[in-house]
């Protein structure tokens, strides 16, 4: 029964994501974002799932692999950061319309794209947890949410700082902004739910349920806010939106920045995962101590 429910859920999830991708592709260029997202997820999710399964069978080798991965990722990320910085500050041309503040995009856009990754990861690993009851899945969704909070907070902060000189306001109830804000609130709710759960096991189960429902909802929130805003006459279309193409250097810099933040995401996620392992070990030892008493 449990397996059947999980499989059904899996299909619901896949169908909803496919639908949302098609919907998003039909609407403006936002589809590019979701499409990139799906690609990254496909790339990340399969080794991630293998890793989780592996961690259960061969804990020692898993630990070694995690250590190695972190050690490899850290210097690469550092070098990429320096590369991004030098590109953004020294190499890329200044935008004709937006001026210097356009350079914020090289931080903001990768951050925003990476903070859309956790909903996918969380829904996937929550289904995995409810189905297999493997601690590894739970650790993955908790880590993804915590890293998601970090990325979403930064997306909101950097976006706001960009908006102040450009739009003249810190915040606008634009569909994208609203979606990210709601997403952020849902992540915080997830973390609070875990903090207030009566037992770790219940916390894991409740948050898995919340993870699935919340991820589906984040797509619906986006659709609702898009529809809602099209009711407003002041639908904003950029004057430069139709004309001009992306300068080659800007494109390269954006790609490099994107790679940097993807690596950073992976690194922070791995760090959080290994921390979670230690936390679990402490819980096990405490339980043993209780028994010995």
């Amino acid at each position: 029964m449990r397996a059947a429910a999980a499989v059904t859920l899996g299909w619901v999830w896949v169908a909803l994501n496919a639908l949302s991708a098609i919907y998003a592709l039909s609407k403006t260029g936002l589809g590019v974002m979701w499409f990139a997202e799906l690609l990254v997820v496909a790339l990340l999710a399969s080794p991630g799932a293998l890793l989780v399964a592996w961690g259960r069978r061969r804990p020692q080798r898993y630990e070694e692999f995690m250590q190695l991965a972190k050690q490899v990722l850290l210097p690469i990320t550092g070098v990429m950061m320096l590369l991004t910085l030098s590109m953004v500050f020294l190499w890329v041309p200044t935008d004709a319309n937006l001026g210097v503040s356009q350079r914020i995009f090289y931080f903001h856009v990768p951050l925003a794209i990476m903070s859309l990754l956790p909903p996918f990861l969380v829904s996937l690993s929550s289904i995995g947890y409810l189905w297999r009851r493997n601690e590894g899945w739970d650790a993955l969704s908790l880590s993804a949410v915590e890293v998601g909070v970090l990325f979403t907070t930064l997306t909101l902060a950097t976006g706001s700082i960009w908006a102040r000189p450009t739009w003249g306001v810190w915040w606008r109830w634009d569909p994208m902004l609203t979606t990210f804000f709601i997403l952020w609130l849902m992540y915080l709710g997830y973390l609070l739910l875990r903090a207030y759960a009566p037992s770790p096991d219940q916390g894991a189960r409740y948050s898995a349920v919340l993870g699935i429902v919340g991820s589906v909802n984040s797509v619906i929130v986006y659709m609702a806010t898009v529809w809602w805003n099209t009711q407003h006459p002041e639908k904003v279309v950029g004057p430069a939106a139709e004309a001009g193409s992306l300068d080659a250097r800007m494109g390269v810099a954006l790609l490099v920045a994107f790679a940097t933040f993807a690596l950073l995401f992976a690194y922070v996620l791995l760090e959080r995962l290994s921390l979670r392992r230690d936390e679990a070990q402490v819980e096990v030892l405490r339980a043993q101590l209780e028994e010995a008493r």
Binding site: I182, L185, M186, L188, G189, L192, L193, Y196, A197, P198, Y206, L210, V213, G214, N217, I220, V221, M223, A224, T225
Partner: peptide, 18 residues
């Protein structure tokens, strides 16, 4: 959960936004 009176609105309100 503990502090259930606050937990439900925290989870419920963002969810019903659409």
């Amino acid at each position: 959960t503990r502090s259930r009176e606050i937990m439900l609105p925290i989870l419920f309100f963002p969810m019903v936004v659409p």
